[in-house]
Design a protein around this nucleic acid. Structure first.
Length: 593
RNA sequence: GGGGGCGUAGCUCAGCUGGUUAGAGCGCCGGCCUGUCACGCCGGAGGUCGCGGGUUCAAGUCCCGUCGUCCCCGCCA
């Protein structure tokens, strides 16, 4: 085999005159009957090669069999392209390879789809032939970018004194959180390992072990329904530090994020990252992961509507609810149907309806609810929402949670429709001081709002019996453009407090000892104060590439049901395997659910 | 579990209010072509219109069911 002496994409005018060998794939072939042009591609890029029947007759006869994606070794002399035939669209466009020897290393059948074009291809087909999909330069660049990001993150973490430690993939199932993937235990019937949803307990135990600064590029597994930004297995930068406070963790992650984004992309950042408490984010944006690339903050109308006669608003306020509004710039031009669509979005979020005011060009107001409101109320509402001619103001009156949810949806919808968000901006922002508990209406019990290991604010610890909902913790999320990308907390490091929190979550002491005993014991054996965070690597890459689907930045992702059309996983297994694992598959009748 | 979109040639798609033999571009096969770069020109092959049922003189088109996939809700410490 003719072995490569240089990569295709690296050839430049400075190489003119050199005899080189290239290895790669035929990206496109242009056979003129006489001259044959082959654009040869390797992972660095393309270079044009020319096979001349007069200069190299034997090479030419072999080259006639070259088709797209034929695997080649080409030897020849690098030369300047004839004047007027340079290709300024590719970096190697000044030169070409004058081929003297052609070796066909492998041929190809008809391709399931063309790799030399950027036209959209059905995703299932791309995933079935992912190795072909990844040959496309745009896909390779994503793999490469991901590599650069992880490399840069590692360098940053090493520089900061972190130690990289691997934690087990086969571990113990945890009762809370997402559904676990289970691995049957062969040596004893009925026992299972679980794949980790995160290395949470291990990293805390590494702090007890005195590692002090730990990180890992960690695979995590959650058996939950997929979304565009969720895969059953995904990757996090998992980190934990001892003898630190919240500020130390935020500083490390903010510094790392800025370093990576500025080194590896052209995206703009807001520095320093804005910070909101959870309560403030909910009040101003209706969500704990706001897209702060645009304004349109929620406006609380309670003060204005204190004495209102409008039943819907009045009832909401009197029953402890809220009336809040969001401005839709230019929304006055919406048709009746478009307003109905907007209302449907609010209803899908749980709202009973959506009231609105439209400001006409002459300053008058058009609205189904105008007749229920006084002129003073309308004037105050317009002033409070900063409304101007052509705007629509959408109102939601309901419980605080529903108001927040509905207006968050509306705000995002408006932002998207009006293209208010700068696509070149990565607006990271911190959300801090999450609640410790939230009330689970469905199951009539307290559940944790963030994670069960988060340290409550010390001044709130006494509220655990009197007002658990008011307790706040040293929990923090880092959001970006409306999605969550990192989540962490300062942890509880004393057994008594951890036990008290778990009790409040409804665990009996027996259950606590059974499921968390090893943690509590560790905390009683000299656990240092510690905390950590875990940013999502896959999502970070999509921020940098602009992809809206996480599958685009994962080499071998899974489809919706967790299926891999390339390998056919998941698959059935031999009866003998099942027997060894003490498992029996039971097929329930169709309608048994 | 629920809602919505999509499913026509190897790939990407068009196919109107149902009406001759279901089309285009790319790819593939054959021929021509010595400066192209998505080379060009000529010719050709290739379709159970996802699957099943129904309405109709007639279904890619309308209806019902079903399967696959994508997005969203639920779910996701």
């Amino acid at each position: 085999m003719l072995k490569r002496t240089v990569y295709c994409g690296n050839l430049r005018a400075s190489d003119i005159g050199k005899t080189v060998t290239l290895n790669g794939w035929a990206h496109s072939v242009r056979d003129h009957g006489g001259l044959i042009f082959v654009d040869l591609r390797d992972r660095t890029g393309l270079v044009q090669t020319v096979i001349d029947p007069d200069a190299a007759p034997s090479a030419h006869s072999v080259a006639q069999h070259i088709k797209n994606e034929t695997v080649l070794a080409l030897t020849g002399r690098v030369r300047q392209r004839p004047e007027g035939t340079e290709n300024p669209r590719i970096p190697t466009g000044e030169v070409e390879l004058e081929v003297s020897d052609v070796e066909i290393l492998n041929t190809t059948k008809v391709l399931p789809f063309q790799v030399d074009q950027d036209t959209a291809v059905n995703e299932e087909l791309r995933l079935k032939y992912r190795y072909l999909d990844l040959r496309r330069p745009a896909m390779f660049h994503k793999l490469k970018l991901r590599h650069e990001v992880v490399k840069r993150i590692r360098a940053y973490m090493y520089e900061q004194g972190f130690i990289e430690v691997e934690t087990p993939i086969m571990t113990r199932s945890t009762p809370e959180g997402a559904r676990d993937y289970l691995v049957p235990y062969r040596l004893q019937p009925g026992l299972f390992y679980a794949l980790p949803q995160a290395p949470q307990q291990f990293k805390q135990l590494l702090m007890v072990a005195g590692v002090e600064k730990y990180f890992q590029i960690a695979k995590c597994f959650r058996d939950e329904a997929q979304r565009a930004d969720r895969q059953p297995e995904f990757t996090q930068l998992d980190l934990e530090m001892s003898f630190v406070e919240q500020e130390d963790i935020l500083g490390i992650v903010e510094g790392m994020t800025i370093d990576v984004v500025e080194a590896l992309s052209d995206k703009k950042l807001i520095k320093p990252f804005p910070r909101f408490t959870y309560d403030e984010a909910m009040r101003r944006f209706g969500t704990d992961k706001p897209d702060v690339r645009f304004g349109l903050e929620l406006v609380d109308c309670a003060q204005i509507l204190l004495g209102t006669e409008f039943g819907v608003f009045k009832n909401a306020l009197e029953s402890g609810g809220q009336v809040k509004a969001v401005r839709y710039p230019g929304g006055g031009a919406l048709s009746r149907k478009e307003i109905d669509d907007l209302t449907a979005i609010a209803k899908e979020a749980g709202a009973k309806g959506m009231a609105y005011l439209i400001v006409e060009e002459n300053g008058s107001v058009r609205s189904p609810i105008a007749k229920f409101l006084s002129e003073a109320e309308i004037a105050s509402l317009l002033a409070a929402t900063d409304a101007s001619a052509g705007d629509l103001i959408a109102f939601i009156a309901d419980t605080p949670l529903t108001v927040a949810k509905a207006l968050d949806r509306l705000r995002r919808e408006i932002g998207e429709r009006q293209q208010l968000a700068d696509p070149n901006l990565l607006a990271f922002c911190w959300i801090v001081d999450f609640p410790v508990f939230e009330w689970d209406e469905e199951n009539n019990r307290w559940t944790f709002a963030h994670n069960p290991f988060a340290m409550p604010h010390p001044e709130h610890v006494d509220l655990i019996e009197s007002d658990p909902a008011a307790m706040r913790s040293f929990c923090y999320d880092l959001a970006c453009n409306g999605s969550e990308w990192a989540s962490g907390s300062i942890r509880i490091h004393k057994p008594d407090l951890q036990r008290a929190i778990l009790r409040k979550l409804g665990y009996s002491d027996e259950q606590i000892d059974e499921q968390f005993g090893h943690m509590l014991e560790a905390f009683s054996l000299g656990a240092p104060p510690h905390g950590g965070i875990a940013p999502g690597i896959d999502r970070l890459i999509t921020y940098l590439t602009g992809d809206d689907n996480i599958r685009e930045v994962i080499a071998f992702p899974k489809m919706g049901g967790g299926l891999d059309p390339m390998t056919g996983a998941p698959s059935t297994v031999d009866a003998r395997q099942l027997e060894e694992l003490h498992l029996e598959v039971i097929y329930l009748p169709e309608d048994s659910d």
